[in-house]
Amino acid sequence: MNKKSVTEGRRAVITIRGLKKFFGKNHVLNGFDMDLYEGETLVIMGKSGSGKSVMIKCLIGLETHDEGTINIMGRNMENVTEDELNEIRTEVGFLFQGSALYDSMTVRENLEFPLRRHVEKMGHFSDATPLVLEALESVGLAHAIDLMPEELSGGMKRRVALARTLILRPKIILYDEPTTGLDPITSKEIVLLMKSVQQKYKTSSIIITHDVDCARFISDRMILLVDGINYAEGTFAELDASTDPKVQAFFKS
């Protein structure tokens, strides 16, 4: 009921129906449904090993799912060509849990790497510095442009990774545990940054986390992933008020 009120009149950019993923006999995902609407921030919570990361990797095509359909911006992911997939991937940013910066390259090269390989979308640059600087400024790290990843702290790495995602101007950003492994203060900074990026670039986001504070602060809507299905959906307030013991387990810890 309330779900309708939040999502009413909005276009779904990602639609997942009946997603199943097996690792041998282990059913990680068992019929997961999800919609992401334009401009919203969706937080997906779940325990470790509940299949959150697997779901998001299936979404971007890093893992292949066994059953179900995934539709991103009107395109069915089951039958896209490699070129089409790469085109979709420029529209969908992905922020890895461990930042995944290319550690043999400087920050600048990290950011230039995707930029120079999407000439058809981004155009050809003789000097990409303005764009790189713009992306770094939006995460507050313009001064770190010529550093190597090993010279950066964990929080800075996340920010650079975010800048690297932003440089392709994606319409959707997927965050895989953005605050995990960071101290509370840095976590807060990252969450604030995500919020500001969200407003600045008008992106839709899916955030995978088990950080309740993060979820409370940033979410428009939440999905609880339990036993491989979307167990509960709603705003943070709605779910926090739920009496379901499995839902309560997330909030009363």
């Binding site: 420029t90 940013g93 290319y102």
Partner: peptide
Amino acid sequence: AELGSMRVTEQIDAMEVSGTN
């Protein structure tokens, strides 16, 4: 070792999801 560590730190995945080869 280089590609292996790139794989386990998801750098190869990062390249893939940024639509590069």
